[in-house]
């Protein structure tokens, strides 16, 4: 565990960087066109970061690949993805994913 000073500085740095990122284009490029190269690069950032968080949460169990039927999170995640694809609705996706996970946990155990 880091010292309290380092901990607080870490939080403040991340906070300032996050704020700077969010403010960046709203302020700097407010009156100018955003370079198209930058725009096409940024386009892939959300899907890449979020997928890099989603996949391990579904496929890994204790840092090991688990493709078995007993991987309840993978099954619930796939069903949730189908719901997201068909409905484009955040709430339905979360509700279906959680309920399926709970049901599977009951049956698999």
């Amino acid at each position: 565990m880091m010292t309290p000073l380092v901990l607080w500085l870490t939080l403040i740095y991340i906070g300032l960087l996050t704020f700077a990122i969010r403010l960046s284009f709203i302020t700097i490029f407010g009156r100018r066109e955003i370079p198209s190269f930058l725009q096409s690069t940024l386009r892939f950032v959300p899907v890449a970061v979020l997928s890099a968080i989603i996949f391990p949460a579904l496929f890994l169990y204790g840092n090991k690949l688990d493709l078995s039927v007993s991987n309840t999170r993978l099954l619930a995640g796939i069903l949730a993805a189908i719901v997201a694809w068909r409905t484009k609705n955040v709430l339905s996706t979360i509700v279906v994913g959680m309920v399926v996970l709970w049901l599977l946990q009951v049956f698999v155990k």
Binding site: I54, A80, V90, T93, M98
Partner: peptide, 11 residues
């Protein structure tokens, strides 16, 4: 699990 589910819904 709500975290990956929220991200699935966004991606």
């Amino acid at each position: 699990f709500a975290l990956p589910l929220t991200f699935i819904a966004l991606v």
